[in-house]
């Protein structure tokens, strides 16, 4: 599904945050990427989500080589990946009501009408009632907002879901609920998952396999921990 080869990436003129990292997620596989904060795993997730242009290395998505990132990536490649970020407050446009937030990708791709029912169903599955959907981000809690952000990421039926520290800010019950929502979707669509995080117990319980990354931004010492 996703193949990252020899990725080196960084910001501006600084040291590379990610050095010569390779990673592959098979169709339908759930891979956990475990590492301490600041080790570059979020940057790698952004490269994988086609949101950050790497300095070197190649990204292959469903057999196609990715030729550009951000706006330069073709729309069908971008929308094949659903992304959920760590901080829902920053990942939600503060002016959009939750209803519009969830429907945003459908409207951006001109499928607003076609996917209206799916948006409503996803909101319902995420536990967001009609009253909450009328609110704006600053009027709901982190947990409620992250539920909406996850629904948004699932709207276009992505074949790969990237969750970058999706539950780091959330309590145990909301974490379990969001993970259950992701797993329901994966079961239904057979989608792959790249879950990035620092919680060994959580990733171990959630993913098929967990790849550990040492603190150096260097995957040389990375080992593969297979669960169950």
């Amino acid at each position: 599904m996703l193949e990252l080869t020899g990725i080196t990436a960084g910001y501006d003129r600084g040291r590379p945050v990610v050095r010569d990292m390779s990673l592959a997620v098979a169709d339908g596989e759930a891979l956990g990427l475990l590492g301490p904060s600041g080790c570059g795993k979020s940057t790698l997730a952004r490269v994988a989500a086609l949101l950050h242009t790497p300095w070197a290395g190649s990204v292959r998505l469903a057999g196609e080589t990715v030729t550009g990132h951000r706006f330069r990536a073709p729309r069908h490649q971008r929308t094949a990946i659903g992304v959920v970020f760590q901080q829902p407050r920053l990942a939600a446009d503060p002016r959009l009501r939750l209803r519009d937030l969830i429907a945003e990708p459908a409207r951006a791709t001109g499928r607003g009408r076609e996917l209206a029912d799916r948006a409503a169903a996803l909101a319902d599955a995420a536990g967001l009632g009609a009253e909450l959907l009328r609110r704006r981000p600053h009027e709901v809690s982190d947990g409620q907002l992250q539920r909406a952000c996850l629904a948004r990421a699932l709207l276009l039926r992505p074949r790969l879901l990237i969750c970058d520290e999706m539950t780091a800010m959330l309590d145990a019950s909301t974490t379990a609920a969001l993970v259950a929502l992701v797993e329901d979707y994966r079961k239904e669509q057979g989608a792959a998952l790249l879950a990035v995080g620092h919680d060994r117990v959580l990733l171990g319980r959630w993913c098929d396999s967990v790849r550990e990354w040492d603190g150096d931004g260097n995957p040389a010492g990375a080992e593969l921990l297979t669960q169950e």
């Binding site: 989500a49 706006f71 992304v83 920053l90 939600a92 951006a108 791709t109």
Partner: peptide, 10 residues
Amino acid sequence: PYIDAAISGG
């Protein structure tokens, strides 16, 4: 990130 999210949403 919300701009990232919009880009990722197509």
